Measured scan of single mutants.
Amino acid sequence: GEDLPLPPGWSVDWTMRGRKYYIDHNTNTTHWSHPLESGPSSG
C-alpha cells in the first residue's frame, strides 16, 4: 500500500528475510500490516 505516516510511538523495521513489519513501542507489539491500513477498530 501507500507509505502512510506512522502514529506516535511506532517504527518500521525489516526481518532478516527483508520483510517489512511495524513496531508499536506503546504496547511493545509487532504487526505485519500498517496500523492505519487495517480496518476501523473500536476502542
Rank of each mutant, 00 (worst) to 15 (best):
K20N: 01
P5D: 15
D24R: 02
N28F: 05
S41Y: 07
T30H: 11
T15S: 06
H31G: 01
N28Q: 09
S11A: 08
G39I: 11
W10S: 01
P8T: 07
G39A: 14
K20W: 04
P35Y: 02
G9D: 02
S42A: 14
T29G: 02
V12N: 01
S33V: 14
R19W: 09
S38I: 12
S11W: 02
L4I: 10
Y21G: 01
I23R: 08
H31E: 00
T30K: 14
T29V: 05
T15I: 04
H34Q: 03
S41K: 10
L36E: 06
W14G: 04
G9W: 06
H31L: 04
K20V: 09
W10V: 02
H25F: 07
W32G: 02
R17S: 15
G1M: 11
G43M: 12
H31S: 09
K20M: 08
N28L: 05
E2G: 10
P35I: 02
S11P: 01
H25I: 05
L36G: 08
D13T: 08
I23D: 00
L4Y: 09
T27L: 04
P7T: 01
W10Y: 01
P40T: 12
S33Y: 13
D24N: 10
W10P: 01
T27A: 04
G43Q: 12
P7E: 02
W32F: 07
K20A: 05
N28C: 15
E2T: 12
D3Y: 09
S42V: 13
N28M: 08
G9V: 00
G39V: 13
S38Y: 11
G39E: 10
L6Y: 03
G1L: 11
Y21T: 01
G43E: 12
D3S: 10
S11K: 05
P40L: 12
I23V: 08
P7Y: 00
G18C: 08
H31P: 00
D3H: 10
L4R: 10
L4A: 10
Y21P: 00
S33A: 10
L4K: 10
H31R: 07
V12R: 05
S41D: 11
L36P: 05
L6K: 06
H34I: 06
Y21W: 04
G9S: 03
G9I: 01
V12T: 07
P40Q: 12
S42L: 12
T29M: 07
G18Y: 05
D3I: 10
H31A: 04
H25S: 08
W10I: 00
G43I: 11
E37H: 10
R17Q: 15
S41A: 13
R19S: 06
P7V: 00
H34T: 03
D3F: 09
M16F: 14
H31M: 04
K20P: 09
S41N: 10
P7L: 03
P8R: 06
L36T: 06
Y21H: 01
P8L: 08
V12K: 05
T15D: 15
S42P: 11
P35S: 02
E37Q: 13
K20Y: 03
G18R: 04
I23K: 05
M16C: 15
H31F: 06
T15G: 04
P35T: 03
T29N: 02
H25E: 06
S41P: 14
T27M: 05
D24T: 00
D3N: 10
L6V: 05
Y22H: 00
S11R: 05
W14Q: 08
S42N: 13
R17V: 08
E2R: 10
H25Y: 06
P5M: 08
T27D: 04
G43L: 13
W14Y: 15
L6S: 01
S33D: 09
T29L: 05
W32D: 04
G43C: 14
V12H: 05
G39N: 12
R17D: 15
S42M: 13
Y21I: 08
W10A: 00
W10M: 00
Y22N: 01
N26A: 07
L36W: 09
Y22T: 00
I23Y: 08
L4C: 11
H25W: 11
G43V: 12
T29C: 05
R17E: 15
P35Q: 03
P40G: 13
M16E: 15
L4M: 10
P8F: 08
N26Q: 06
N26T: 09
G43H: 11
G43K: 12
H31I: 03
E2V: 11
D13Q: 15
S38H: 11
D24H: 05
S41T: 13
S38V: 13
V12G: 04
S42G: 14
T30D: 03
